[in-house]
Design a protein around this nucleic acid. Structure first.
Length: 151
DNA sequence: GCCAACGTTGGC
DNA sequence: GCCAACGTTGGC
């Protein structure tokens, strides 16, 4: 089982939005490294939902991969911020997954706490200046986070 | 709101 | 292929 972490700004789309919607297509990722991780995801893998650009930043809950290898529909949408004129239906550039809500953690696991617990090699999100929005989480690290989430 | 860090673009 | 300029991310 692989584990992942994905970022979103809660003002745009947060864990409470996912709880309401139950599932969502994780669109708008326009970074090749992140896209390659999205392409490699398989059904049922668990994904930590990280709230960025908020106070405090941190892991807010858990979701799981519900559909894999979807073409990101926003790449074809000229009205979208994520429109990519170089992408066509015949040769799309951006793939993603659909995710399903699993749980909201009782308390957010703040970036500060994550920094106290993990090195930047183990958990990339704690690395200063890290802008990658989709990243793998080693299993041992994921287990610790899940324990921490219980309080 | 500021600004450091970063990824991408484009001139050469 | 290099790298300066630029736009964006995201912590603070």
């Amino acid at each position: 089982m692989k584990y992942w972490l994905m970022k979103s700004e809660p003002d745009v789309y947060g864990i409470e939005d996912l709880k309401r919607d139950r599932t969502t297509v994780w669109d708008g990722v326009r970074n090749y490294q992140a896209r390659n991780f999205l392409r490699s995801m398989t059904l049922g893998e668990l994904v930590f939902f990280y709230h960025s650009n908020t106070t405090p930043p941190g892991i807010a809950g858990l979701m799981k991969v519900a559909e894999t290898n979807l073409d990101d529909p926003t790449q074809f949408d000229a009205n979208s911020n994520y429109y990519d004129p170089k992408a066509t239906r015949e040769s799309p550039r951006w793939q993603t997954v659909a995710v399903e809500f699993v749980e909201t953690f009782p308390e957010i696991i703040t970036l500060e706490t994550l920094r106290e617990t993990f090195s930047s090699d183990d958990l990339w999100v704690v690395r200063q200046g890290n802008r990658l929005s989709v990243m793998p989480v080693p299993e041992a690290v994921a287990q610790k986070i899940l324990e921490q989430a219980k309080g």
